[in-house]
Design a protein around this nucleic acid. Sequence first.
DNA 1: CGCCGCATTGACGTTCGTCAAGTCTAGTGG
DNA 2: CCACTAGACTTGACGAACGTCAATGCGGCG
Lengths: 239, 239
Amino acid sequence: MSLASIKVACSNCNLRELCMPLGLNDDELERIDSLVATRRKLKRGDTLFHNGERFTALYAIRTGFFKTAITTEDGRDQVTGFQMAGEIIGLDGIVNDQHTCDAVALEDAEVCEMPFERIEELSREVNALQRHVHKIMSREIVREHGVMLLLGSMRAEERLAAFLLNLVQRLHARGFSQLELVLRMTREEIGSYLGLKLETVSRTFSKFAEDGIVEVKQRHIRILDTEALKRIVNPQVCS
Amino acid sequence: MSLASIKVACSNCNLRELCMPLGLNDDELERIDSLVATRRKLKRGDTLFHNGERFTALYAIRTGFFKTAITTEDGRDQVTGFQMAGEIIGLDGIVNDQHTCDAVALEDAEVCEMPFERIEELSREVNALQRHVHKIMSREIVREHGVMLLLGSMRAEERLAAFLLNLVQRLHARGFSQLELVLRMTREEIGSYLGLKLETVSRTFSKFAEDGIVEVKQRHIRILDTEALKRIVNPQVCS
DNA sequence: CGCCGCATTGACGTTCGTCAAGTCTAGTGG
DNA sequence: CCACTAGACTTGACGAACGTCAATGCGGCG
């Protein structure tokens, strides 16, 4: 095995428990090593792909933090998601062979580019990969159902609490603290995602801080009372 | 070919230009005839599957109209979509082998049950089917992005206008009028989907009627001015 | 014919958006 | 090293949009 091939091999990646190889055995894992064509490094602010661009590949995030957003002709803007290491972006492009949103790095990042042709080819041969690809897409659909619930029926405090809980939960799965996090996005981006104005996001953070639920120092957040956050999201159930 | 096999064959279905067989040639089409295990008839109000139920199959709608909705422990309810003939439901169940929402028939309906195992099997053999399944899931993801935009940044009138335009467009693709439609869902269900209360939906319909944009008689809607609706959704662009 | 669920309409309250002023911080360059 | 600046964030006052509550209307079905 050459050094270069080691470098981009899934079987050798420390995210393999989280990312594309999840659920594959060693044999299958080796077979998908050719999935990643290249790695790509991005600086903060760089776009990985943008709306209208031809779709050719999915991207697995190795390091860094992304947002995806759609923009309408009349200038409206909606952040559709925040993605972190081990997550897959670009699924929106499959249906019409072109991307329908922008993916922007919110910090310096590295991604694995996986040509979609190759994914489909290998999916036909490796059943576990086929199943996994289906699950990834289904998971995205279910996630968006959750966002629809949030946008459709929650108030500002509930939205922000749900957002924070979701973030720390995902960060925790990657070995970070459950109680501390650094937001990689602006208040405006959070607001766009949550269907709120940035002032409302800011006010709601301040309210949480007053109530002793979190400590907010700009983008540094420390969660002081996880249970309180859960109670805010889900008022009835938690007494 | 026996009568029974004709009856459930995709190759013989009048929705083949819209549904699962889309984009397949005759040869491929014949190979996926075994996709549909059974047909299932439902009465208005019946649930096709519900939250928590084991996932085994996707369903293609032959006739009728469905809603999908998630319910939280604390009784919140969010309609995540309305589906009509030729559309596929059940994608939410793939990720955890169990459904995460309820699918309810809003009128008498018939669906084709396609065991997911069989879909995956045939996808490995028929490339066009594999591609099509991926596109269906991607389309759902993109649709939900649109709903997020709607819920996150539009006002009541814009939401309802977008909703009506989307409905007639889909109905038109099925051979119905572009200007007339019968809503199969209640104001409350529309409201749940659009993140509004039923009173707001009702008021907004009345406003549109006053402005001469639509004619509303309970669930019978006639669109008098499509351009005006488009202008409401997209104020800047249309002057 | 009468009932029940759905829809409409009005009056009022709450939440969040808007506008504006001011603060903090990281990054830049002298 | 410090001053400066631009962008991000906070906070307050006010208003608009939508939710809530309640009364009433309508139509389909038994």
